[in-house]
Design a protein around this nucleic acid. Sequence first.
DNA 1: TTAATAGTGTCTCTTAGACAGTATTGC
DNA 2: GCAATACTGTCTAAGAGACACTATTAA
Lengths: 298, 298
Amino acid sequence: MDLKDRDGLTEREFLEQYRAGDFERPSVAADMVIFTVTDAQADSYRKLPEKELRMLLIRRGGHPFLGKWALPGGFVRPNETTEQAAARELREETGLDDVYLEQLYTFSDIGRDPRTWVMSCSYMALINSDQFQLKAGDDAAEAAWFKVTYRLLRERKELLEEGGYVKTLEYELKLSAEEEELTAVVARTVTARPTSAGTAYAIVANDGLAFDHAKIIACAIERLRGKVNYTDIALHLMPQLFTLTELQQVYEVILDRELLKAAFRRKVADLVTETDHYTENAGHRPSRLYRRNLEGYR
Amino acid sequence: MDLKDRDGLTEREFLEQYRAGDFERPSVAADMVIFTVTDAQADSYRKLPEKELRMLLIRRGGHPFLGKWALPGGFVRPNETTEQAAARELREETGLDDVYLEQLYTFSDIGRDPRTWVMSCSYMALINSDQFQLKAGDDAAEAAWFKVTYRLLRERKELLEEGGYVKTLEYELKLSAEEEELTAVVARTVTARPTSAGTAYAIVANDGLAFDHAKIIACAIERLRGKVNYTDIALHLMPQLFTLTELQQVYEVILDRELLKAAFRRKVADLVTETDHYTENAGHRPSRLYRRNLEGYR
DNA sequence: TTAATAGTGTCTCTTAGACAGTATTGC
DNA sequence: GCAATACTGTCTAAGAGACACTATTAA
């Protein structure tokens, strides 16, 4: 087809003469929440080590937010998708190439970067403990894996005159590495009005995190918690071989609550395949090792 | 705190001297999938009218994709968030201000806009039939509400040598307005590999839709279908007063399958409040009218 | 009276929660 | 034997699916 527009141009002619207007454009960054799971120090030779959910952060070496901790990320370059930018950043920061990657949300609050107009298209990556090496931060920047806790602090509900309500959920986000202890409070506000409705995040308190990264982290944890229940997403955090108790520990550390063993095993039965291998030299009965069942989830 | 960076500048000094580099930046558009539900023509005075899921599209009046149909949307302006841009576009296209609005996904494939580098941050809006008037398209552009169907065409699963599989789900998207009939086939590819995993959309066939909007629409329908089952999202498509049968019809048209009455009523019981009003002059037993229960969902 | 929808009762099957009981190892 | 974890069996409660039955209106 050779449709012509008002100026009598075909599409090819139009594109040849097209010049991008000099409207102001935003920079777009891909920022990543990279999760992994590690073992805490075991108390006794008999006890199993506890699992910890950890996240990679990088200490800023320049303004703005000099000295604060930020998510790994960087600007999306021309001829690159946001996914590719995220994968590239991940490779640069961790050397890893082949991981679970999922887009989270695009944050565009004005002033979220004090330098200039920057939107953040955020991603979540899951790394299993086989791939995991603490060699993060090959470049000059200081990097560390922070232990994550995210817990409901308070809940408030206000009724509106016109009908509907505003519910505010305040979560405390705690991130701790060797020397560092970061704390933030993120409020999730759910507005329900007769016609409209919506959810918004706000940072209530923030000690040590750069930009609006506390929001992005909150968003990632909530996505992870949600998906754990109805997908096999948690298996991306597991090594090749693992016990069902380890898998349960990972679920528990993500959800921040204890689960019942029997029910848990029924639930994940289809997500794993048993092997003929067993753990050895634990101070107790050996445990069968499982593999991820790639056919499992639907 | 007055931390100084390598150049001996404080944060304030840094920001004062900061000039945005002239790296190439993308344009960012907010594109919207605006859903509503309408009544089809009833066959007889006795029969209830069927519900139809509809979506607003705008015929392009210029290159590229001249004459094709596109989602309402536009570029995000400086000092505006993507949410605000979406809300502004919605107001411009429909005159509506107070609606359910939710961010979907950010699409950034290179070449998705043949003119220049454009990312699309997509949103879904739900409009109830009270607010709905077919006055869309006050400006010069031609606009129409298209009836939506989205149905699984075929499913393919290929096992990989390294372990894992690639599953391809092909959906047929049909959009129809008075004279117009648009058809596209969108493939959702789920890749499951031992370490990585991911989902991607691709357009397999496309007749009449501009840009990659078939993907965005597919994404919106899948989000809507998913959320219908575990939130009260469908109630944003309902007028102030409605019958439970109407609500069920809306669920059915979204999910594209029939539901059982008794089970449905149990499920939505907490999402609605009964009123003392009844339908009148239907050719059969009157039906109790309900309101949305704003306390209902969690 | 009739053609339609409105609305309820109840049986079954599946799943999640709870808990108790048995099994097996290293030291 | 002991201190742990490994693993299974079973009761119960809640929910989804299926279906049948009764109720009520306008024409």
